[in-house]
Amino acid sequence: MSTLLLSLKIEFSGGLELLFSNQRSHRVQIPSIVPIDNSTSPSAAVPASDISMDLPTSPQSTDTGKTKAADITYLMYYLRDHLLKERVELFMEGGTVRPGILVLINDTDWELEGEGEYILKDRDEVVFISTLHGG
């Protein structure tokens, strides 16, 4: 059996924290199985039948194609919809983070982890660092 909710530590740096209540560190809990369209609204809640089953180890193993294992892309949508306070265009662009934002997953460049397709695990630490805050 696996956990139903993933507990994650999120940090913002390089000025990005200004968009998130000027708070650098956040702890969030997200479901381990999420809608495949990354919808985070309550109406798009994941069916109980999906989240009560054993967690799949990869998105390909989700049953109906309507859900997937929670990944970084879903996390970005979650942060945008629930924590972001202003100016979404400074955080996301074209379904991913805006160019100029460095993402570290457990202290490792997300480019080494598959970028948005990285499947989140419980107690992962994800850092978003803006490189565009002056020179």
């Binding site: 390089g14 000025g15 460049d109």
Partner: peptide, 13 residues
Amino acid sequence: AAWVWWNGLEVVG
């Protein structure tokens, strides 16, 4: 950005 993060530096911005 990685240097700043891994060395715990503050960026005034």
